[in-house]
Nucleic acid binder design. Structure first.
Length: 457
RNA sequence: GGCCUCGUGGCGGAGUGGCUACGCAGAGGACUGCAAAUCCUUGUACUCCGGUUCGAAUCCGGACGAGGCCUCCA
């Protein structure tokens, strides 16, 4: 079985063999969050999906040879509006939001990207790109704004596969007096004194929406790189405009070779929206009972997310989380006290087929019986390593501490119960078992007469 | 209106021309004081209608349905 990586490329709308520009320096960029509010569960999808890809690339090319950049957009009009609304400074808002985001992502079992650049640290590069675009005739300054002149780029619309005519037919574009073409989009715009702004050749202002990604990918990955990822909704206009900016600024045919997009998420069959009241955040799922009446471990959320192929639409349901929890707990029991060996080739090969997790999951079920060590290694591989034997022991200890029992207290209770069972005192036996169950500890009577304990799931 | 996805058993979800995965849930059984866990058994599905073919869930055409984008959005 071959582990050659194949990925679906939105540019060509087909699955292609992945061939890096430089196998010693594989480069991937993923559009990260705009930090103005708690990240919702839809935001978690690209984070998890591309974390899986990152892990796979590290395996295939070596951890030192993969560079993963996921940006943090900390300048945006939504941020300005939210900060004003809450009466906090922009810096306070973006710092706090980013901190929660980082905690959420860690709980979801994601590795840190190689670099997490911030938009506000790359204003210089943005200005440079804009200057290049102007001098190449692809952008123009007008009325304190700088706009990208869409008709100046013949290939515009290549990624989203739409022609300028079609786009204009939709015709709900902003009409502004300073625009030459209806589709032209803003690279730079003036800031009021109460808005964040930077000095530039066009006056004090701030960047438009798309240019930050062109600047940050350039700064950290170069003019051209391997993979660019994000949600499917970003294809147009965000990624289309990034391509336009980068290709025209650097006079390149392409910006990234492979464009990958994850599908959308719905909640219990409906679009997630604040008005429907089904807007759920990662934070809420992890730390409250807002969904399904209980909190969910990050690993459960991660597994539930991965079980649907990343390009398919996913329906986020309580049932899917319960299923994922069942499967996950099953695996954890199977690898309790097992030393991880190596992930199997079949498993890697399945993932290498455009991240076909469902196909890979089959091998996990097989390994559960035939080779727990390999199962543990496969689970480690895909980011479930928080439950290595040592940390399972740790979480058992933590639970004891939480309920105020020492290990010998527990052992005492267990042996009392064994006594009771020997004298067929079932009432006492059940009383002890129920008492511990209510404290989050499940007892299990083994066939040899011993009793072991585990954390309740 | 334009463009783009998708439609598999109760649920999730592989499978791109023949051998009809896998998991969850359910049912039956073994074991057990009862549980839990484990093990065994059990599931013949592919939206509809045409077409191509010896043969289609899989290819082609059409219908219906769901979702997305075209405007901020992962």
């Amino acid at each position: 079985m071959s582990s050659a990586l194949k990925i679906y490329n939105t540019l060509t709308r087909s699955k292609e063999l992945f061939e890096p520009i430089d196998c010693k320096n594989v480069r991937i960029y993923v559009c990260g969050p705009t930090v103005y509010d708690y990240a919702h569960i839809g935001n978690a999808r690209p984070i998890i999906v591309f974390d899986l890809l990152f892990r796979l690339l590290r395996h295939l090319y070596g951890a030192a040879h993969v560079k993963y950049v996921r940006n943090i957009t900390d300048v945006d009009d939504k941020i300005n509006a939210r900060a004003a609304e809450r009466g906090v400074t922009i810096r306070e808002l973006t710092e706090k939001t980013n901190q929660i985001f980082q905690e959420d992502v860690e709980a979801l079992g994601c590795l840190d990207p190689t670099v997490q650049p911030r938009a506000t640290d790359h204003i210089v590069q943005m200005v440079q790109i804009i200057e290049r675009l102007i001098s190449a005739g692809h952008a123009y300054a007008a009325d304190q704004h700088v706009l990208f002149n869409v008709p100046s780029m013949q290939r515009y619309g290549q990624l989203s596969r739409r022609s300028l005519d079609e786009m204009l037919a939709g015709a709900r574009v902003d009409v502004a007096p300073y625009k030459r073409g209806d589709m032209d989009f803003v690279l730079w715009k003036p800031s009021q004194l109460n808005e964040p702004g930077w000095d530039s050749p066009w006056g004090r202002g701030r960047p438009g929406w798309h240019v930050e990604c062109s600047a940050m990918s350039w700064a950290h990955l170069g003019e051209i790189f391997d993979i660019h990822g994000g949600g499917i909704d970003l294809i147009f206009p965000h990624h289309e405009n990034e391509i336009a900016q980068s290709c025209c600024a650097f006079d390149r045919e392409i910006m990234a070779h492979y464009w990958m997009h994850n599908g959308f998420l719905q909640v219990e069959g409906e679009k997630m929206s604040k008005s429907l009241g089904n807007f759920i955040t990662i934070h809420g799922l992890l730390h409250s009972d807002c969904f399904g009446g209980r909190a969910w471990a990050g690993a459960i959320l991660r597994l539930a997310m991965l079980r649907t192929h990343y390009r398919q639409p996913i329906d986020w349901t309580v049932k899917a989380l319960e299923d994922a929890a069942n499967v996950y707990n099953d695996w954890m029991r199977a690898i309790d006290c097992v030393q991880p060996s190596e992930p199997t080739e079949e498993f890697i090969a399945a993932l290498s087929d455009d991240l076909n997790f469902a196909k890979a999951e089959v091998h996990l079920h097989i390994l559960k019986r035939s080779n727990p060590g390999a199962l543990a290694a496969c689970l480690d591989f895909i980011g479930f390593q928080s439950h290595e034997p040592s940390s399972l022991a740790q979480s058992k200890q933590a639970q004891l501490a939480k309920i105020g029992l020492t290990k010998s207290d527990l052992e005492q209770l267990i042996s009392e119960r064994i006594e009771a069972r020997l004298t067929k005192n079932w009432a006492e036996s059940d009383r002890i078992r129920n008492q511990l169950e209510s404290l989050g500890i499940t007892l299990k009577d083994n066939k040899d007469g011993t009793t072991s304990w585990m954390l309740s799931s």
